[in-house]
């Protein structure tokens, strides 16, 4: 564990807490893409298949449970909670994410560390996470003004993978024979997809203005 990876995990946890706060405090999920939440639930379930077979550390197991439970709870809220579900932007959240799932799985069948069920699903979860934010970014562009908590949620979600890239660079330099090509390349693609969001987020912070993504 290094400082970059801890910062990444804490930033990721923070993004989830901010989203839970937004939904709980405002009893609303307006501006949140349910499709992105569903993709993240798939990402965590596909990535943590080793949850019950390999024990790495209490921290590792605890965080995996938090990520799986929170993503499923948010999807449940957006689908079935009588109050929250009414504020879902159904007509704006129309990204056809089936292709993202299909393409990620097809790529995982081709490019993986080992051709085993666990490793193929791990690679699938890495590729899917790289593109999982797309429905959310499209929704932000369509829904005009973005409320503060939603903007902070997306910002922390994008920042966490940037910390992971620093972690991989650090491990590559300090651990002999450390390579993490699949996660590294996907992580760069994932973080790059946030580039324009980060730009407009910075502008809104500098001008102390409302965050607005151009349509």
């Amino acid at each position: 564990m290094n400082i970059f990876r801890l910062a990444g995990d804490m930033t990721h946890l923070l993004s989830i807490l901010v989203l839970l706060l937004k939904i709980y405090a405002t009893k609303s999920c307006s501006g949140i893409s349910r499709k992105t939440q569903e993709l993240y639930a798939i990402v965590f379930m596909a990535r943590y298949l080793d949850l019950f077979t390999d024990f790495i550390s209490v921290y590792n197991t605890f965080m995996k449970l938090i990520f799986i439970a929170s993503s499923l709870a948010i999807v449940w809220c957006m689908r079935f909670h009588p109050v929250v579900r009414r504020s879902y932007d159904r007509e704006l959240d129309t990204f056809r994410y089936f292709f993202l799932v299909g393409a990620s799985f097809a790529l995982a069948l081709v490019w993986h560390d080992k051709f085993t069920l666990q490793e193929v699903f791990w690679a699938f979860s890495i590729y899917l996470e790289a593109v999982a934010i797309l429905p959310q970014l499209v929704l932000l562009q369509r829904s005009g003004n973005v409320d503060n908590l939603t903007g902070q949620y997306v910002f922390f979600l994008g920042a966490y993978r940037a910390f992971y890239i620093l972690n991989w660079i650090y491990r590559y330099m300090t651990e002999p024979r450390f390579t993490r090509w699949i996660a590294g390349i996907s992580g760069v693609v994932q973080t790059a997809l946030y580039a324009d969001f980060f730009y407009y987020y910075f502008i809104s912070w500098k001008n102390n203005s409302k965050l607005k993504l151009p349509a």
């Binding site: 995990d9 080793d50 995996k64 560390d113």
Partner: peptide
């Protein structure tokens, strides 16, 4: 902790 396939990260 460490895992043989290196998947020790979240």
């Amino acid at each position: 902790g460490y895992k043989e396939n290196g998947k020790d990260e979240l």
